[in-house]
Nucleic acid binder design. Structure first.
Lengths: 260, 260
DNA sequence: CGACTTTTTGATCCGATTCAATACGCGTGG
DNA sequence: CCACGCGTATTGAATCGGATCAAAAAGTCG
């Protein structure tokens, strides 16, 4: 399954290059996103139903809380946060999403978006009208499979987050987030050890179920401990192993005084 | 879409009655479970791939953590808890599941069960071999739709749980659990105001991310406040509205000192 | 009935929140 | 280019909710 480079030798018209990159089959995220495992022919059919957004800037909504559901969205570039509102004003952030990830899946059941999605930085998304997608999935088993897989992955990662929020200390939570981002950047071909946090401290705190102040203090502490380097939003991981250990769970530290 | 009663007038052999009840089309959970929206003809095809378990008693596993994935399961009767293990021994319970709910969906992506499932009381489940289910879903759009719907529902409820664990106080958490159980019992035709908790206090604590002692104290307090009546595992809801309010979020109470 | 597990209750402790204040980063306009 | 102002982030001190430790009480089961 050789990668097709982002150039088109045969007819190198500008237009073609652009459209190839825009289309699923030219997208660098193909292997992470819905198209994975879908053959070239069927990929064109998927391409036909995809609507690509123009770049949307920081703070713009992909969809709002309560919007009627008609499509799911794949992040194409940039990053997006999803959130719900607790009855008072505070947001509970349910996820930070990177390119290749699908959002809006939680709306299928109810027909309206139970959470909103907002760009954390300039971002582009692909809109996948759900009715058409469903129809196509019936005809393209590999697409159905990948859709189920991605939904399952979402359920899986929600489950992990549940453990995080249910059982882990503030320290572990932040370590886990940094570690998760690192791993996901790596998957996408970016440096796993040096990246920019597109979300604010406040967003991080909301996501992790902590107070902003706590998050801030932790960043400072992690830096003092030589785990990471933080400069505003720029993070450099200094001790990947220790970070991983902390993220995975240092539960053993707290475990019964076994291991004399 | 008239309801078909649980009896079979035409050929009332005992065997038939049993097999009708056992089959999806005779199942009282049809409207909640995977069969919803699937027509009679296709329902028979679904029936052919379903494997019904004999009753499994309390503590028995439907599947274990790490088991290879080959099927998802629908609860048919009784109740089941799903859980993961944090690296130290403590379980994080990820859900309590009632008849008509699907479990094992989180394993599709990885091929092995990231969480275990254990009967909380005597329970029966329907095993749905995934490969066959997927195949059938391609041929039966309404089945595909319902599968996606149920997965979406799972993602949705995970999201709610996230908010619960991320943002809510111990009080709110327990109220939310009781309220959720009440609502789900109601859906299934049981009394919403009087039911038995099939799980232990410990399970509840693990699920809610609290200590057992806290849960216990809260039950006592709720009773003193006249919200509920608790007698061991038997719960009677006394003030449905106040419980709902507490569960939904009494965030306003804590909100800015507005409302002078 | 007696051993064991589960639940409840009480006392103490600690991590994280909250309140308060300062510092920093960044865009704007002088 | 620097001064100003506003939102974001950091730091410090006090407080509190829930965990933990300890022990009694109530169920459960052979």
């Amino acid at each position: 399954m050789a990668e097709i480079p982002n150039t088109n030798r045969e007819q190198a018209k500008v237009v073609d290059l652009a459209s190839v990159q825009a289309a699923c089959h030219g997208c660098s995220l193909r292997q992470l996103c819905l198209p994975m495992g879908v053959n070239q022919v069927d990929l064109h059919r998927l391409d036909e139903i995809v609507r690509r957004s123009r770049p949307m800037q920081r703070g713009k909504h992909v969809f709002r809380l309560g919007d009627q559901f008609h499509a799911i969205y794949a992040i194409r570039s940039g990053s997006v946060k999803t959130y719900t509102m607790t009855d008072a004003g505070s947001e509970q952030i349910t996820g930070f999403h990177l390119p290749g990830e699908l959002i809006g899946l939680d709306a299928i059941a109810t027909g309206s978006h139970p959470c909103g999605a907002k760009a954390l930085e300039t971002a582009t998304v692909c809109e996948l009208p759900f009715l058409q997608l469903e129809e196509l999935a019936v005809q393209v088993p590999s697409l159905q499979h990948q859709l189920l897989r991605l939904m399952s992955k979402e359920i899986l990662s929600d489950g992990e987050l549940l453990t995080l929020l249910g059982k882990k200390s503030a320290e572990e939570r932040l370590a886990a987030l940094i570690f998760s981002l690192s791993a996901r950047f790596k998957e996408r071909g970016f440096s796993p050890n040096e990246f920019r946090l597109s979300m604010s401290r406040n967003d991080i705190a909301d996501y992790l179920g902590l107070a902003v102040e706590t998050v801030s203090r932790l960043f400072t502490r992690f830096q003092q401990q030589g785990l990471i380097d933080v400069q505003n939003k720029q993070v450099t991981i200094r001790d990947h192993d220790r970070l991983k250990e902390l993220a995975g769970s240092n539960a053993e530290d707290r475990a019964p005084q076994a291991r004399a």
